[in-house]
């Protein structure tokens, strides 16, 4: 394996083959009002939710707020969640809808504000990366931030259904089997969609580079 280290593999909590069964048990318990079960679900998926929100809206503070909102919506919606859909499928739908709501509200706010009061370009801070190893080389720090910004812009420009696939596989390290189970499709379908998603991402990354 060329890129996944042993640490990566250990971090792949979402790639366990029994994820769907485990989720189903936690969801049943949480739907009955068990907050401890819901806490386990939250801890399991908070990174996926947060990163999905971040790459959808491009802003860390907003993503943190949205993550809370999404998880609360999940909690409130659990009693109406039907077991014939996978939890992860349902969760991704709530992520998508909540982020879409947020972006609509944001656009509305921007539209109603006076253009003259707005800065030419909003400064969007780049959050700390997943591996915040101390960098002593300022050039390396700069490059890393630049890469993070480029990845963020490229992912933000992706269609949501492609972005979530990239996050599940390439960021969270979920197995193809888990993703297929979560999305209710064949592994071959996941692979072909992911291939298209990655090709598009590479194209966006190249565009971002060209724009620099």
């Amino acid at each position: 394996m060329l890129f996944m280290t042993e640490k990566d593999a250990a971090d792949d909590v979402l790639s366990e083959p029994d994820t769907a069964d485990e989720d189903a048990a936690l969801v049943r318990s949480a739907a009955a009002g068990n907050t401890h079960a819901f806490e386990q679900l939250t801890r399991k998926y908070e990174r996926l939710v947060f990163r999905s929100a971040f790459y959808a809206v491009g802003h860390e503070e907003d993503a943190a707020d949205l993550t809370q909102e999404i998880l609360l919506r999940v909690w409130h919606g659990l009693p109406s969640f039907r077991g014939n859909a996978r939890f992860l499928t349902w969760l991704t739908r709530i992520i998508r809808n909540t982020c879409a709501d947020h972006l609509r509200k944001k656009r509305r706010t921007v539209q109603t504000e006076s253009l003259s009061a707005m800065p030419d370009e909003e400064e969007i801070p780049i959050p700390e990366p997943a591996d915040p190893a101390p960098e002593s080389d300022p050039h390396a720090v700069y490059e890393k931030q630049e890469t993070a910004g480029r990845v963020r812009d490229a992912l933000q420009a992706m269609p949501e259904e492609y972005r979530i696939l990239i996050l599940m596989r390439d960021v969270e390290g979920m197995t193809y089997e888990t993703i297929a189970g979560a999305l209710g499709c064949e592994i071959g379908t996941v692979k072909s969609r992911l291939h298209r998603a990655r090709a598009l991402l590479r194209s966006h990354l190249a565009s971002c580079e060209g724009a620099d």
């Binding site: 060329l2 939250t42 993503a63 943190a64």
Partner: peptide, 26 residues
Amino acid sequence: RWMISALKSTAPEPREDLTKKVMARI
């Protein structure tokens, strides 16, 4: 290789207290 590596290494981490905050609200 670069893309996969960049995706992993630049993915932001949620704050440690995020779950705690959600559970507190619940």
